[in-house]
Computed example of a mutant assay.
Amino acid sequence: MITASKWFWNGLWNYTNRGFEKKKQHFNENDLNQDISSKHFIITGGNNGLGFQTSLELAKLGGNVHILCRNQEKGEQAINEIKDKSKSDKVHLHLCDVSIIGSIKSFVDDWKKQGNSVDVLIHNAGVMLPNREETSEGHEKTFATNLLGPFLLTKLLMCDDNNSGSGSGEGAHKRVIFVSSGGMLTSKMSKDFEFKKFTTNKNLKWDGMRAYAETKRAIIYLTELFSQNYQSFNSYSMHPGWVNTTGVMNGMPLFYKMTKSQLRTLEQGCDTIVWLAVSPTVEDHSKYSGQFFEDRQIVDKFIHNSHTESSQEDINSLWNYLNEIFLKSC
């Protein structure tokens, strides 16, 4: 309760639209004044919410934007809207369900056959489910979407010899951005990565918000692990603050009702994602890779005395578990 209270009061100061406008006064807008016309950006869940806005902003800046979406009709609608608003035709749709290993493999195979490279991979897609569900491949869907999918896409797209930077010089590092959530600050990573306890103990009640927060906490560790194990690209995690999205409205109705007037716009919420994607400021691997960002600044990954830290053994177990799935399926 104390941790949740600290988080809420800190959020009122920092995660709201007013918090953003306050910190915006210290932004260097030249950070976004970059030539990204030759760069390719992949955004998962780019057809709505923060993913849509991120795609739109990158298209406005002149980048080659590739949206991953599982629904063709919704994807095409988003593509057309982004092209119209950005006045850019360098916006592309790729059908991919990031919760399904087979769909991820199919997309990556097609991507590589076309000879494409990735400069920035943005993991935006996420789900908060009212009930525990499993994918057609047998993985719990919150885990599969929020954690396994980003891991597999990063391994397949960024961790091979053909897509590794030299590690030196300006612009040498490719980038992976994991969109986490401020809510993860109240949670500890579950050691039951796929929440199997809910299938063995019928007395347990599923809490979709908690499962979401726990996978978003795990994303913070995943960012660090990729940074430690791969020097050829930078990995960053961030949270967008409290943003007015349909996901918040539907998944957290009481919170939405309490904070609606103070929630950030999509433009405010995606600002740090775009900044991490294009700014030269965060190029230094040793200084910035593996870090957690809020409003263009490195911030703490834990609330003081929240006891939400995991042991190194548990963090290693996460890495090993994900790699086992990768080796079995890919």
Score class of each variant (00 low, 15 high):
S306M: 10
S164R: 12
G138D: 04
M1D: 09
F226H: 06
R18Y: 12
S136T: 15
E267Y: 04
Q34E: 11
W13E: 10
A213S: 13
S106N: 12
D89L: 10
G290L: 03
P253F: 02
I219M: 15
I325K: 07
D192N: 10
I104Q: 12
M252N: 02
L147M: 03
I273W: 03
V282G: 02
Y230N: 13
P280V: 00
H94E: 08
Q34F: 02
L50I: 13
S99E: 05
S235K: 00
S117P: 02
T154K: 10
G75R: 08
G46T: 07
S261V: 00
T223C: 15
I100C: 09
L225F: 02
R132Q: 15
P280W: 03
K23V: 00
Q297M: 10
T3M: 03
S180R: 13
I36K: 11
F20S: 04
K85C: 03
N163C: 00
T200Y: 06
G269C: 02
D31L: 02
S136V: 15
S317P: 04
F143L: 10
G49W: 13
I2T: 13
D161I: 14
L93R: 00
M158Y: 05
F293A: 01
F20R: 01
M184A: 14
L93F: 14
C69E: 15
G171D: 01
Y221F: 15
S38F: 08
Q72K: 12
T308E: 07
Y256G: 04
D109L: 08
I177W: 08
P240I: 01
D31G: 03
H285G: 01
Y256F: 03
K202E: 15
N305E: 11
V179G: 07
K112G: 05
V282H: 08
V282S: 06
K39V: 03
C96V: 08
D119P: 11
S286T: 13
V98F: 04
F107K: 02
G11Y: 06
G241P: 00
L61T: 05
N14A: 11
W319M: 04
E73D: 13
N48M: 10
E294Y: 09
C330R: 05
S117G: 09
S5M: 15
Q231A: 14
D84E: 14
Y230R: 05
S227I: 00
I67D: 12
K197E: 15
L95P: 01
T3A: 06
E133A: 08
Q34Y: 05
K202V: 13
L318F: 11
